[in-house]
């Protein structure tokens, strides 16, 4: 039992490193885009990873009572996602304006704002 407890800090450290790697790749997607929905998804995922990283940091430093901050993010992080999707709703030309490439964005095919709104919220 004690050997497991001794192992825990390195487990937390390894998990933090893995999370940082995931956050890095999410950041690349958020910066490169190219469509607006890539960025929305990236920010939402980055928020989820931040919740996990904050929890891990609490355990790494031996003070898990700071989980409150992770809880705040878990509760209000998807507010911005919902706001963005409500903002795009029924306005495909705005979606095009907000994407960085001139790729012909088939809004109705794979990135319908109505369809992606509820799914994104459900993943929280």
């Amino acid at each position: 039992m004690s050997s497991i407890l001794e192992l825990m800090p390195s487990v937390y450290a390894g998990a933090s490193l893995a999370l940082l790697a995931v956050m890095g790749s999410t950041l690349v997607r958020a910066i490169l885009g190219p469509t607006a929905f890539d960025r929305v998804m990236a920010v939402n995922m980055f928020g989820t990873k931040t919740v996990l990283l904050l929890s891990l940091l609490g355990f790494l430093s031996g003070r898990p009572d700071f989980l409150d901050i992770a809880l705040v993010y878990a509760l209000v992080n998807f507010l911005s996602t919902i706001a963005v999707l409500r903002f795009f709703e029924g306005r495909p030309q705005v979606v095009k304006q907000c994407s960085t490439t001139d790729v012909d964005l088939d809004v109705n095919h794979d990135a319908d704002p109505d369809a992606s709104g509820p799914t994104t919220a459900m993943e929280e």
Binding site: V40, V43, F46, T50, L53, L57, D68
Partner: peptide, 30 residues
């Protein structure tokens, strides 16, 4: 593109909060 900037500033804030926590400024992070 202003929309991309807003999305990235959301990420910026998330990173700031993580940094504040790791530097023990918990109330600021909150």
């Amino acid at each position: 593109k202003l929309f991309c900037i807003i999305m990235l500033s959301g990420i910026y804030s998330l990173l700031c909060a993580s940094l504040f926590v790791s530097m023990d400024a918990v109330d600021v992070a909150f």
